[in-house]
Design a protein around this nucleic acid. Structure first.
Length: 897
RNA sequence: GCGGACGUGGCGGAAUUGGUAGACGCAAGGGACUUAAAAUCCCUCGAUCUCUGAUCGUACGGGUUCGAGUCCCGUCGUCCGCACCA
């Protein structure tokens, strides 16, 4: 458009501006940012560093709207911190190994590699549309040979430091995916991915010794001040520390005294773990797990017991099975002797509720103090001796019938412990038994137990990082020499059968032993994909480094200042990463223990569901397939194609199966990225779920157009005006509104309270609406013009973190020659964020009756005098003196009549 | 069962952490502009009543306080995590 025609147009319609067109505008500004490489972090930049990271996505093929909310939050922080003068690292990558690629290979005959890289390419393009200020120069995928090569280096370093072990253990076997799952990946007895019922199998597996760090991982939670309490609590529960006592109970044999029970050769004690040694006089039986060595031995000549053990093995592990499972046991015939009474023997049962892999796989049962033990005792007619009684109960009448008492109180029926508190009794029992001996060892020792297990990382899959180890018949398990790394995945691979394709590859597994040179075979297990995501944040600090990290860069950038992701990773990913960072410190790759200084868990994007038909004929409808109507205040959904009414279901996480998904393109194609970004952060607090609604998106877009109208109509008249804050009059009101908004938006972003920041921007836009229109109509005096010019500059900078494209467009229209993305955050004038006069609410007897407008710096005496002179106060007092006048400075006045 | 979080208009949510409850947005209703529509602008919007004012009101019942959405005790409800962990 020529200057002449522009002038004609503006003469005809002085107020007319075109609507803002995000489709033309957004790509333009994205190119401008890229051209200046504004988002590429320089490790040598001397400014203070700030590392903001969102949990990287799995390349499933499509970016989900939930992803974009997550990344937008990180982007707002990144853009804000950049404007505040930080050297910001904001990278992006791909968590690219895993089962879905293999499933696609099996179903669609695509190579997992091709499938994955194609998905990455598509998703990268989707992300770019969002205008995120990411450093794409550092992008990598965990399936890049470059990346898993370094992961193999780390693995070998961990092996050297003794952080890796290989042990035979019972594993959770997913029969559908035909692979092993970590305990953390078994949810309600089912595989976290396949949903298949998990079986128990005995396999030799590779483990990371995370339990070595159990205490440290627990203790260090306390220092994570910028983590949600909820996540810390979940981790603490998962680590599950308990303090107790190992007690060795002598088996009743001819040597120990009355040989009542069955005698097993070579067995003379039963070791149990208990957190309640104080209840030892309430013991009425012992119980061991079905896999306990004593149980196995006792079953050798006892077919009935062997049968029972077999039954326990086949018991379901589903929640339903566990909940309904009755406490069942089988008496082995073995007897133990009570540590404090040689004449007291107790039966040893095999019980279905005792777990082999916690404690020692054996317990003593105290029915009065433990519900499970009580259920068991009641079923098998074993004695129930109350040993702890609530304070103030009458011992004569206190009984335990079918509810165990687990609280605090006072010891009874416990000989020398009687009258003590349970805590004291605990210590007393520990002290006495530590002094007694059995064999050559003390009869008891204090022991801390953890629920946390070592992290099994072996997976019998192709699409993962090969474990760089070699099995040699003569030398045993030998690490691949570092010089021979990487162990690359073979490309020629068949997916015609389930199971591990690496295992049946014709040549790949055959190698020479690096130690003796004889024929040997490669480890064909690959690593759990949670290994890949346990250190990617460190790799981002120097993705070009030959070693896994560049320790200098890692030291400078880490910890991640702000990590943002879903609550679903509260345990697995975050705990593994905390362990990994410790292991990397041990091996010299980083110099810190805690990888994430600040953690934020964002809510999901949810949408209601629509369903037509009923029973087996019913089907789900996508939001785009229905039309919503409002009939007599009732919302109805109509299927557009058929006109049938659909049932509106509750808000649910967006999922393919229920078709309640909205794709980012549906929004960005029409309204643009800024609308999507603005909508996802407004209204709902970021930690809570946000409901995607068309009205909400439309509302966000209306605001974009409103800002554009406001700025562009005033732009011409403000063109030559120098920004200047005013203190008085209408101009002063404008300046104060702008500076107050500037202050609170900054504070809100620092706290990640994006919804509040957005509310403040709305307020500022509302406040500027009249003055800016006056300026556009030429009705503003120089003071007001200066104030408006400055306020509009501030407004543009305030919207920039959330609506970066619109901000650039506005800035250009206002005559800016640089980019908002490279401009500093404006500084507010402290004198403009406080008013010289304040309005104090005045209460009489705690109820608000009116206001008092008074100078901000008025002293208490002046405030009291002015309050007492108010009409409504005098009326309320009826001429009497007030009993009390409470003045909270700058806040409220309460007159007590 | 154990552990934790939460409960505010028609809706999403604010409330400086004990100081004006309902900011801001969505939805709804009314009006202006228009031949009309869209867009835009203005007004109303917790409930009740004797309506220029008053009373009630933050799940429910008590308590502490000059003052409670906020703190304490109890009840109900919702959500989340763990779950036979001795």
């Amino acid at each position: 458009m020529s200057g002449r025609s522009r002038m004609l147009l503006s003469e005809k319609h002085p107020m007319a501006t075109e609507r803002y067109n995000p489709r033309a505008s957004e790509p333009k500004w994205q190119k401008a940012w890229d051209a200046k490489k504004l988002f590429e972090a320089d490790n040598d930049d001397p400014r203070p560093k700030y590392y903001v990271l969102e949990m990287f996505p799995y390349p499933s093929g499509r970016i989900h709207i939930g992803h974009t909310r997550n990344y937008t939050m990180g982007d707002v922080v990144a853009r804000y911190k950049r404007a505040k003068g930080f050297n910001v690292l904001h990278p992006m990558g791909w968590d690219a190994f895993g089962m879905p690629a293999e499933n696609a290979a099996m179903q669609n005959k695509v190579h997992p590699k091709d499938w994955t890289y194609q998905n990455i390419a598509a998703m990268r393009e989707q992300l770019k549309v969002m205008g995120l200020s990411l450093d794409w120069a550092r992008e990598f995928a965990t399936c890049d040979v470059d990346y898993y090569h370094r992961q193999q280096m780390l693995f070998l370093d961990f092996v050297e430091k003794g952080l890796v072990t290989r042990k035979s253990s019972k594993v959770n076997w997913d029969p559908e995916d035909m692979t092993v799952l970590a305990n953390e990946q078994v949810i309600d007895g089912r595989g976290w991915r396949s949903g298949a019922l998990v079986e128990q199998r005995e396999l030799t597996q590779w483990f990371f010794k995370i339990t070595d760090y159990a205490q440290d991982l627990l203790d260090s939670l306390e220092g994570l001040d910028d983590w949600p309490e909820k996540v810390k609590l979940m981790q603490a529960n998962w680590i599950g520390r308990s303090e107790g006592l190992l007690i060795r109970w002598p088996l009743a044999t001819p040597a120990t005294g009355p040989a009542i029970g069955k005698v097993i050769d070579g067995e003379d004690e039963l070791e149990v773990y208990t957190t309640r040694p104080d209840t030892i006089f309430g013991a009425s039986f012992m119980a061991v797990a079905a896999d306990h060595p004593l149980a196995k031995k006792a079953a050798e000549d006892n077919p009935a017991l062997a049968k029972f053990i077999d039954e326990v093995h086949h018991m379901g592990t589903s929640v339903a099975a566990l909940e309904t499972a009755e406490k069942k046991g089988f008496d082995t015939g073995i007897r133990v002797v009570h540590p404090f009474d040689e004449k007291w023997t107790l039966p040893v049962y095999v019980a279905n509720f005792v777990l082999m892999d916690y404690g020692t796989g054996a317990i003593f049962g105290c029915p009065s103090g433990d519900q499970r033990d009580l259920d068991f005792a009641n079923r098998y007619g074993l004695p129930v001796i109350p040993v702890v009684m609530p304070e103030g109960e009458n011992q004569g009448s206190f009984q335990i019938i079918d509810e165990a008492y687990v609280g605090d109180g006072v010891m009874i029926n416990s000989r020398f412990l009687d009258g003590m508190k349970p805590d004291q009794a605990f210590d007393e029992v520990a002290k006495l038994l530590e002094q007694k001996t059995i064999g050559n060892r003390p009869m008891a020792e204090r022991k801390v137990n953890f629920r946390l297990r070592d992290w099994g990382i072996s997976r019998q899959r192709y699409w993962g990082c090969p474990i760089p180890m070699i099995h040699c018949e003569d030398c045993g398990v030998v690490p691949v020499p570092k010089a021979d790394l990487p162990v690359k995945l073979p490309d020629d691979i068949e997916f015609d059968r389930p199971g591990n394709p690496l295992d049946r590859h014709p040549t790949w597994r055959h190698v020479k032993c690096p130690r003796c040179g004889k024929d040997a075979r490669r480890e064909t297990d690959t690593m759990d994909t949670f290994v890949d995501s346990s250190w990617y944040f460190a790799r981002f600090t120097a993705p070009w480094a030959n070693d896994p990290t560049d320790p200098k860069a890692a030291t400078e950038w880490l910890p991640v200042d702000q990590y943002i992701g879903g609550i679903e990773h509260a345990i697995l990913h975050l705990l593994y990463s905390r362990f990994f960072t410790r292991a990397m410190r041990e091996t010299g790759h980083v110099d810190l223990a805690e990888p994430f200084r600040g953690l934020f868990t964002q809510g999901m994007v949810v949408h209601e569901t629509y369903r037509v038909g009923s029973g087996s004929n019913s089907r789900w409808l996508a939001p785009s397939e229905v039309r919503l109507e409002d009939v007599d205040g009732k919302r109805r959904a109509i299927e557009i194609a058929t006109g049938d009414e659909a049932v509106i279901g509750p808000l649910e996480k967006m999922s393919k199966s229920k078709k309640n998904t909205v794709s980012p393109e549906e929004i960005t194609d029409g309204y643009g990225a800024d609308t999507a970004r603005w909508f996802m952060l407004s209204d709902s607090p970021p930690e809570r779920d946000v409901e995607w609604t068309d009205e909400g998106a439309a509302g966000a877009h209306r605001f974009i157009q409103r800002i554009w109208r406001l700025v562009s109509t005033a732009a011409e008249s403000l063109a030559g005006t120098r920004p200047a804050a005013a203190k008085e009059g209408e101009a002063g009101t404008v300046s104060k509104a702008a500076h107050k908004a500037l202050k609170s938006v900054g504070e809100d972003i620092e706290k990640l309270a994006f919804n509040r920041a957005i509310a403040r921007v709305y307020e500022l836009a509302n406040a500027l609406s009249t003055p800016l229109n006056e300026a556009a109509e030429g009705k503003a005096d120089p003071a007001l013009k200066g104030a408006c010019r400055q306020a509009v500059d501030i407004l543009v900078h305030l919207i920039a973190p959330v609506m970066p494209h619109l901000a650039e467009e506005c800035w250009q229209t206002l005559g800016g020659t640089d980019l908002v993305a490279e401009r500093p955050w404006p500084v507010y004038d402290p004198s403009l964020v406080v008013d010289s006069e304040i309005v104090l609410p005045v209460q009489v007897n705690g109820k608000k009756r009116g206001d008092l407008t008074i100078a901000r710096d008025a002293d208490q005496g002046a405030v009291e005098k002015a309050v007492l002179a108010l009409d409504f106060v005098q009326k309320a007092l009826e001429g009497k003196a007030p009993r009390k006048v409470i003045i909270v400075p700058q806040r409220i006045v309460n007159v007590v009549a």
